[in-house]
Design a protein around this nucleic acid. Structure first.
Length: 376
RNA sequence: GGGAGAGUCGCAUAGUGGCAAUUGCAACAGACUGUAAAUCUGUCCUCUUCGGAGUUCGGUGGUUCGAGUCCACCCUCUCCCA
């Protein structure tokens, strides 16, 4: 993996660059659709490639390990062969599940014991094991195993947790360095900054994370319920401390506004379930604001789904029809909404990149932030 | 003509003397941020300063401190026998 910054904004910290992987290039800033189980819910790889212009998608270590399991993925020849997505992938480590499955797991110094949400069976995830699993899954970028802390989180716990995340990181890096690619392409390991909402802990974490000189760095533990201002403040701090010549990945973020604000702070990569999950729950994002497609107001609105949208669904279907599909619980509704939202997110990133290159990103961003928050 | 049964807030249901009344669906809003999520929450008779107030269970009358619940008659519908 190789990252090059091609353009830097003069009036903010936004930058445009390219990440080169053995599965292809990724133009940054980039949004990565989430495909936890190896599949972006409701959207096939053809549409992901040809309509949405996705450049990299996510998979999840915990979920893929439980099902289909490493045997199958290895037999398939790696995750990209298995899911017919022949482009870059990134796997999250299961660190988020330490948070989201909080009542089904136990943390120890050694690792985290999960009680499977599928069949209740117990599985221990140690940093070493997570590296081995991520090697076998075979994503181009793999994440270190961390503890994503909840919000609010008291200082003592945040400090204790950060210590553990750092010790786990050292073990991840060691294991990563003493193992090789399972397939015929290389993998990059990204460490994750934690420290909850505490600046001194974040600073300490950034310094420790940077010391490993990994090929990219991630900011975790944000967008878990804290106010947006707090998230921006900490993101700003982390961006200022993490290496400039490595991609910065803000994990799990976020809303379209979150993405633009974070790009201005120096973030290069994002992932979030919002476009797909909220899409399945009838929320559509557009350049003019958000729409709840279940609302009665769309029942007889026969205008195109999104006149300015870039996806084929935007010009093929009407608002009234999509509302009908949602109200009738037709599966097509979930697909159309997911495709539209992902295409929107990717287009937003493309435009952001264009404005960074043209040098007017900040002004454009400020206009967009106002429009994106509208409720249509 | 004879016999049996049923009418509850859009629909369907619960309710057998303390009830603004159960539950499901529908409807209408809202939430969702490294996916245990095609999920969850709220409203859903009227008014409200959100504490309450006022009208309700086919109709009319009655018994009772109190009736959706008990009694009488009436109306409507369903089924069975002619």
């Amino acid at each position: 993996m190789k990252f090059t910054v091609n353009y830097n904004s003069k009036d903010c910290n936004a930058r445009a660059g390219v990440i080169k992987t053995d599965h292809g290039d990724i133009l940054t800033p980039i949004f990565m659709p989430v495909g936890t189980l190896g599949s972006v819910k409701g959207v096939g790889s053809d549409i992901l490639t040809n309509d949405i212009n996705a450049q990299i998608i996510l998979g999840n270590t915990y979920h893929l390990y439980l099902r289909p399991g490493l045997d199958i993925i290895k037999q398939a020849g790696g995750i990209q062969k298995f899911n017919s997505w022949n482009k870059p992938m990134l796997t999250d480590s299961g660190g988020f599940q330490v948070y989201s499955l909080g009542d089904r797991r136990k943390i120890t110094e050694e690792g985290c014991i999960f009680r499977s949400h599928i069949d209740g069976s117990k599985h221990i995830f140690t940093p070493e094991k997570v590296m081995d699993i991520e090697r076998t899954i075979g994503a181009d970028i793999i994440m270190a195993f961390d503890e994503c802390t909840p919000y609010p989180c008291d200082y003592d716990y945040a400090k204790k947790s950060l210590g553990l995340t750092h010790r786990w990181l050292k073990r991840c890096v060691d294991r990563f360095n003493e193992t090789e690619n399972v397939y015929d392409y290389s993998q990059a390991l990204f460490p994750i900054v934690q420290g909850s909402t505490y600046k001194d802990l974040r600073k300490q974490s950034c310094e420790y994370v940077a010391s490993f000189e990994c090929e990219g760095n991630a900011i975790g533990g944000l967008a878990v319920g804290e106010p947006a201002e707090v998230m921006y403040e900490l993101t700003d701090l982390c961006c200022s401390l993490l290496p400039k010549d490595k991609p910065r990945y803000l994990m799990g973020v976020g809303t379209p506004v979150n993405l633009l604000e974070s790009i201005a702070l120096g973030v290069d990569m994002f992932d979030c379930v919002m476009p797909t999950r909220n899409g399945r729950n009838a929320m559509l994002f557009t350049m003019e604001g958000i729409m709840n497609m279940k609302n009665k107001k769309w029942a007889d609105d026969f205008s195109l789904l999104d006149e300015n949208g870039t996806s084929f669904v935007d010009k093929l279907y009407t608002k009234a029809y999509l509302r009908h599909l949602f109200v009738s619980q037709e599966l097509l509704a979930l697909q159309i909404a997911s495709i539209h939202n992902l295409a929107f997110y990717l287009e937003l990133m493309r435009q952001a990149r264009e404005h960074i290159i043209e040098g007017d990103f900040l002004a454009w961003k400020n206009i967009m932030v106002k429009k994106l928050s509208n409720r249509l």
